[in-house]
């Protein structure tokens, strides 16, 4: 599973990344977490608000920090 966190590196983006890692850990899931910080890459992927999260290439949310519950659902738990 590939989890991408989109954001230039602001507080909310860090919060999202931390939360995603914590949820993965708790659920005992093994996944690769990648950060996308380049605006050009974000634009190409249709990310028009940060922070955004994509799982296996599909965008799940943008413009907010997702909840624990949402993350678990996206991770297939």
């Amino acid at each position: 599973m590939l989890i991408e966190i989109f954001g230039p590196g602001c507080a909310k983006c860090h919060e999202t990344e931390k939360l995603a890692r914590a949820v993965l850990n708790e659920a005992g899931l093994d996944a690769q977490v990648a950060k996308v910080t380049d605006f050009k890459d974000m634009t190409a992927r249709g990310v028009f608000a940060t922070p955004a999260v994509a799982v296996d290439g599909a965008l799940k949310c943008s413009g907010r920090v997702p909840s624990r519950k949402e993350l678990l659902a996206w991770f297939g738990k």
Partner: peptide
């Protein structure tokens, strides 16, 4: 409209899109 200030660039691109 709520948006994080570091979201200004993606927002700008979204408007253009």
């Amino acid at each position: 409209t709520p948006f994080c200030s570091c979201s200004a660039v993606p927002l700008f691109m979204g408007f253009l899109s």
